[in-house]
Amino acid sequence: MKIKVVVTLKNGVLDPQGKAIQQTLNGMGFPEIESVRQGKYFDLEINEKDEAKAKSKAEEMCRKLLANLVIEDFKIL
């Protein structure tokens, strides 16, 4: 089954790319944008029919490789 994972920087961790994107959007005529935080998105195709098991595998993958828990959080969608 397909599992979607989103990895984002933790609150408080500097995100220079997000900041640059925000400033560019502001300059393009979107003054209402107050903050942009950039993240990563993963589509995992897991050979497992049980959704709970697949999600728990995905969580293990996030902890071991996909996210660096010093600065990043992950969400399994």
């Binding site: 961790v13 500097l14 220079p16 660096n68 010093v70």
Partner: peptide
């Protein structure tokens, strides 16, 4: 070394990109 956990912390993108 930081990714293996042998040293603490992480090296992020330079502040000025």
């Amino acid at each position: 070394l930081t990714e293996t956990g042998l040293l603490p912390g992480v090296l992020q993108q330079n502040k000025n990109i």
